[in-house]
Simulated scan of single mutants.
Amino acid sequence: MPHAFHLPVQLGELLDEHALTLEELAQACRRDPAWVSARLQAGVIEAQGPRAGVYYFTSSTLVRARRIAHLETTFDADPHLAALAADLMEEVAALRQRLAQLEPPSAQAH
């Protein structure tokens, strides 16, 4: 079984920030489009649009949605709890990145 965060090549090469439709996001998360719609309505993930009745999702939303799907499956988490955990994971990553920028180069080598 492929890893939960494995991306098909075409999705891993996203350049356009508004490249995924609801159906494509669902496919990338290995979920039904109804799963994406429910998370969208609950405010757990965000979309751009709708434009001409179609929602579009950014590559960062793809990462978040896959993380939420993984947390829901692995830990039988409620969507809101999975979203909270995803928020915390994103915040920790951002803080680590800021810390790495603040540390002197010699401290990063250890």
Rank of each mutant, 00 (worst) to 15 (best):
M1G: 10
M1A: 09
P2L: 07
P2K: 07
P2W: 08
P2Q: 09
P2V: 06
A4C: 08
F5Y: 08
H6W: 09
L7E: 00
L7V: 01
P8L: 02
V9Q: 07
V9H: 08
Q10E: 10
G12V: 00
L14G: 02
L15M: 06
D16L: 10
D16Q: 10
E17F: 03
H18V: 01
H18T: 05
H18Q: 13
A19N: 02
T21N: 03
T21F: 02
T21C: 04
L22M: 13
E23A: 15
E23R: 13
E23N: 14
L25A: 08
A26Q: 14
Q27E: 15
Q27W: 15
A28D: 11
A28V: 10
A28R: 09
C29T: 09
C29E: 08
R31W: 03
R31V: 06
D32E: 13
P33S: 03
P33I: 03
A34T: 04
W35K: 01
V36A: 03
V36T: 06
A38R: 08
R39V: 00
Q41R: 08
A42E: 10
A42H: 04
G43D: 04
G43V: 09
I45H: 05
I45F: 09
I45L: 09
A47I: 02
A47K: 01
Q48P: 00
Q48I: 11
R51V: 12
R51W: 10
R51H: 11
R51Q: 10
G53S: 04
V54G: 00
Y55C: 03
Y56D: 01
T61Q: 15
L62H: 03
L62V: 04
V63Y: 08
V63F: 10
V63W: 14
R64Y: 08
R66K: 15
R66M: 12
R66W: 12
R67M: 14
R67Q: 13
I68Y: 05
I68G: 05
H70M: 11
L71V: 00
F75S: 00
D76Q: 12
A77R: 00
A77Q: 02
D78M: 03
D78L: 00
D78Q: 09
P79I: 06
P79V: 04
P79F: 06
H80V: 06
L81F: 07
A83K: 04
A86K: 10
A86M: 09
D87F: 11
L88A: 13
V92R: 15
A93R: 14
A94P: 03
R96Y: 06
Q97S: 13
R98E: 15
R98F: 02
L99N: 11
A100N: 14
Q101R: 15
L102W: 14
L102Y: 13
L102M: 15
E103S: 10
P104M: 04
S106V: 12
S106C: 05
A107D: 11
A107G: 00
A107N: 04
Q108F: 03
Q108G: 05
A109Q: 12
H110C: 02
H110T: 07
